[in-house]
Simulated assay, not measured.
Amino acid sequence: MTGVRRAVAAVLMLAGGMIPAAAVAATPAALACVPGKACATPLPVRVVVVTMFEIGADSGDAPGEFQLWKERRRLTMRIPFPQGYHDLYYNPDSQILSVVTGVGSIKSATAIMALGLDQRLDLSRAYWLVAGIAGIDPKDASIGSAAWARYLVDGDLAHEIDAREMPKDWKTGYFPRGRRGPNDPAPPPTPSGEVFELNAGLRDWAYALTRDMTLPDDPGIAAERRRYTGFPNAQRAPFVLKGDQLAAMTFWHGALLSGWANDWTRYWTKGQGEYVTSAMEETGTIQAIDYLTRIGRADRDRVMVLRAGSNYDQPPPGVTAADNLLHENEGYSGMSAALESLYLVGSKVVDTLLADWPRYERDTPK
Results as ranks from 00 to 15, higher is better:
Tyr228Pro: 02
Leu215Val: 07
Gly201Val: 06
Trp268Leu: 06
Arg294Trp: 08
Ala234Glu: 05
Met249Asp: 15
Thr265Gly: 09
Trp252Asn: 12
Met249Gln: 11
Trp268Thr: 06
Leu257Val: 10
Arg211Lys: 15
Gly284Ile: 04
Ile295Tyr: 10
Ala298Asp: 12
Gly254His: 03
Thr229Gln: 13
Gln287Asp: 14
Trp260Lys: 11
Leu292Arg: 09
Met280Tyr: 04
Ser258Lys: 10
Asp204Ile: 02
Leu202Pro: 10
Thr210Gly: 10
Gly259Tyr: 01
Ile289His: 07
Arg297Ser: 11
Pro216Ala: 09
Ala234Ser: 07
Asn262Glu: 14
Trp252Pro: 00
Gly296Trp: 13
Trp205Cys: 11
Asn233Cys: 01
Val276Met: 12
Arg302Thr: 06
Leu246Asp: 01
Glu274Tyr: 00
Gly201Gln: 09
Glu224His: 13
Gln235Lys: 05
Pro191Thr: 02
Asp218Leu: 03
Phe231Cys: 08
Gly243Tyr: 13
Ser192Trp: 04
Pro238His: 01
Glu282Pro: 10
Trp252Gly: 02
Glu224Gly: 02
Thr210Leu: 05
Tyr267Ala: 08
Asn199His: 11
Gly201Tyr: 04
Ser278Thr: 14
His253Gly: 00
Phe251Met: 06
Asn233Thr: 03
Ser278Asp: 12
Leu198His: 03
Trp268Met: 03
Trp205Tyr: 14
Tyr207Asn: 08
Gly230Trp: 05
Met249Ala: 14
Arg225Gln: 13
Leu256Ile: 04
Asn233Asp: 13
Arg294Val: 05
Leu198Ala: 12
Glu194Pro: 01
Arg302Met: 12
Phe239Asp: 02
Gln245Tyr: 02
Val276Ser: 09
Phe231Gln: 04
Asn199Glu: 09
Ala279Asp: 14
Arg226Pro: 00
Pro216Gln: 03
Phe231Ser: 08
Lys270Tyr: 07
Tyr291Glu: 15
Ala237Leu: 10
Leu215Ala: 09
Tyr275Ile: 00
Asp218Ile: 00
Ala223Met: 05
Thr269Tyr: 04
Ser278Ile: 02
Gln287Ser: 14
Phe231Asp: 05
Gly296Asn: 12
Ser192Thr: 10
Pro216Cys: 08
Gln272Trp: 00
Val240Ser: 08
Ala255Ile: 04
Thr229Glu: 15
Gly243Gln: 10
Gly193Asp: 07
Ala247Gln: 04
Glu224Gln: 13
Ala248Tyr: 06
Gly193Ile: 06
Gly284Asp: 07
Tyr291Ile: 11
Gly259Pro: 00
Ala261Gln: 13
Ala261Trp: 07
Asn233His: 13
Asn262Pro: 00
Thr285His: 03
Trp205Ala: 05
Ala200Lys: 06
Lys242Cys: 13
Ser278Gly: 15
Thr283Ser: 12
Ala206Trp: 09
Pro216Val: 10
Asn262Ile: 02
Asn262Tyr: 01
Trp205Ser: 09
Ala255Trp: 01
Met280Asn: 01
Tyr207His: 15
Tyr228Glu: 01
Gly243Lys: 08
Tyr275Ser: 06
Ser278Lys: 02
Gly296Arg: 02
Ala247Cys: 11
Arg225Leu: 01
Phe231Ile: 01
Ala234Arg: 03
Arg266Met: 04
Phe196Gln: 05
Arg225Glu: 06
Arg302Gly: 05
Thr229Ile: 08
Gln245Ser: 14
